[in-house]
């Protein structure tokens, strides 16, 4: 049987920064950003680290699926902004969520991190080990 996505969730920080925020700081404009990129606003995390984005999203996945933290076998964190150079952010997430039966690691593939991670996780699940 193929690997399957059985829960999905996300978390974005509260603080919203519209394009106008940048206009008096750097040489840019709302109009330029919209027409060149399609971006209107973005969120910046003012306090905290990457694991603080992951933990709420991962917690929602556990709730969605109705499973306990001990049911997780492996954690793969795909990021270029780990909390620390080491230990891995996966280890930090494991501690914060109490995923006591899991091993895990960080995966560095920048913007393709999710695809690389999904492929890796799927291969692990399909291997049955």
């Amino acid at each position: 049987m193929p690997a399957n996505i059985t829960a999905v969730a996300h978390y974005v920080p509260e603080d919203v920064f519209p394009n106008s925020y940048f206009e008096d700081k750097i040489d840019t404009s709302d109009e330029w950003i919209r027409t060149r990129t399609g971006i209107v606003e973005r969120r910046f995390l003012l306090n905290g680290a990457t694991s603080d984005l992951i933990v709420p999203a991962a917690k929602k996945c556990l709730e969605q699926r109705g499973i306990s933290p001990q049911d997780i076998d492996c954690i793969i964190v795909c990021t270029v902004t780990p909390d620390n150079m080491f230990p891995s952010t996966a280890a930090t997430v494991q501690r914060k969520l109490g995923l006591t039966n899991a091993w895990g690691f960080d995966l560095s593939a920048a913007c393709s991190g999710f695809l690389y991670g999904l492929m890796t996780a799927s291969s692990l699940v399909e291997s049955g080990r």
């Binding site: 049987m1 193929p2 059985t6 829960a7 999905v8 974005v12 984005l53 996945c61």
Partner: peptide, 15 residues
């Protein structure tokens, strides 16, 4: 101007 902060999570299991 290009980037922002945010994260997602998925659970992967055998189908």
């Amino acid at each position: 101007i290009l980037f922002g902060d945010g994260g997602g999570a998925v659970l992967i299991e055998r189908s």
